[in-house]
Design a protein around this nucleic acid. Structure first.
Lengths: 260, 260
DNA sequence: CGCGGATTTGAATAGTATCAATACAGGTGG
DNA sequence: CCACCTGTATTGATACTATTCAAATCCGCG
């Protein structure tokens, strides 16, 4: 079953803080680069006022990555953190013989990088074109040590990731292949296109950010099984598929009924 | 593969803070209840100096629970947090038809309860006799808001839980039944009996805190399959079993070789 | 010692993986 | 604009792992 997205309530919690009005008044002083940035409101840097943001932006650097690039390798040293501005990143773990498991999906405005970790315990790889706002590791860590509001936001994101990971453990560990695939489509529909979830009865359509191979690695299945389940959902009239990636869900409730 | 336990380094990080010596000088002022408490050093309350601890202890209450008791129900309101002083607690999620997945195991000195969560998204159940140090929800949350060191410790625990959850996703999603069971025994040996991990070549023995049913729910298998794999490990001479629960691992490396 | 729950063992079955071949989509260059 | 080409996805036949159902055995405990 899909997670309740805590981002909304997290934002409210922070916006309720007393010093927040001041931040809004200084809106016009925010760095040019940040002014149109969505992450500034919902992401990690949302805790900063104009002054802090200027200082922060001095160290950041926007970087683009094509789909399929490895951002962080397993057991690689971490030299920077990044906020995702656009696109989707998959977090994977790989066994010695090559079997792979996707352990998380991140998108704007998530923070990328395991805080307080000496080295990465997983691989981060882009699955779409991605735009990042990078900041050097040391810089971010000292800001984190100095700013407990910033650390608070990191905690909120970490808690959300933990909730999500645990939801997926149920799906991966206890659901059947048909249920897994239905759950995956539900997950994408509700998390990547939040408006969809709010229109019960209406049809929802979107592009899957992942290949069948990625979906298989996410669900602990093979590509063939994933494909067969997509076909089954299509022939049963629960979804329609256009050009492999584009999915239209006629009725989310009917899909949910198949999630176990 | 087992996680590197971050508790040690977390403790060091905090102990390195400048105000820490002061805390030690006042050791004799710590509340009687806390003085012999292991959790005070490694757990959440390790951030407090004597004064703070006295204030903290004014709100806490020690509670005992027998094995098999439900501490928090799924979708139940949370009215208190607790530090585990002794015993093991399993965190589970259940599908509508009763299929269950264990999504985490907690033991002393872990904090029990999803911070900033309106209601629990999982069930917490004791699997051994358990002793808790409970504190009312509101009290703990206001301390959390006021004390960023406390929040820092919560963040460290959350990060550790996230790492662990992701490790298990690989095991549950991508390993075979024999590998899953071997991984589980390894996990218990290294996490619940940390000294064991430090004695390569030497035999390790311990009691499993979980029943076959719990292990099955943890690994996404059936009891029968778990049992068969235990038998196989026994007949292969990798482990020996006494009275169902007691396990002796002759050579951890041989067990590790079967973890995939 | 005997009871009840937990565990082990066995045989049959179902579900998913594997191996192999085909079809399709999307991009490239003529 | 179309034909080609490559990587991706689908489909099919078979093998195998883990589940299911059933029965026997073991363990802890009164």
């Amino acid at each position: 079953m899909p997670v309740v997205d805590t981002r909304q309530s997290a934002g409210e919690k922070l916006n309720a803080r007393p010093d927040d009005q001041r931040k809004d008044i200084h809106n016009s002083d925010v760095p040019l680069l940040c002014r149109s940035c969505e992450a500034r409101h919902r992401g990690i840097c949302g805790v900063f006022n104009a002054e802090e943001l200027t200082e922060f932006a001095r160290h950041t650097r926007r970087v683009n990555h094509a789909s399929g690039e490895e951002l962080i390798g397993e057991a690689a040293g971490i030299d920077s953190y990044a906020t995702i501005l656009r696109g989707v990143v998959k977090l994977t773990k790989t066994l010695k013989d090559g079997r792979q498991q996707v352990v998380g999906l991140q998108l704007a405005p998530d923070l990328l990088g395991r805080v307080f970790g000496e080295e990465s315990r997983l691989t981060a790889e882009t699955v779409t074109d991605v735009e990042l706002c990078k900041i050097p590791r040391k810089t971010f860590e000292s800001m984190l040590a100095a700013d407990s509001d910033l650390e608070h936001r990191v905690l909120l994101q970490t808690l959300r990731e933990l909730d999500e990971a645990r939801d997926w453990m149920v799906t991966v560990g206890r659901k059947t292949a048909p249920e897994k695939v239905a759950s995956f489509i539900c997950f994408i529909a509700t998390h990547f296109h939040p408006t969809a979830a709010l229109a019960p009865g209406k049809s929802v359509s979107f592009d899957l950010p992942l290949t069948r191979a990625d979906i298989a690695d996410f669900l602990g299945l093979t590509i063939e099984t994933v494909s067969r389940q997509f076909t089954r959902l299509r022939t049963d009239g629960v979804i329609s598929i256009a050009g492999n990636r584009h999915i239209e869900v006629a009725d989310l409730e009917r899909l949910r009924a198949r999630c176990g």
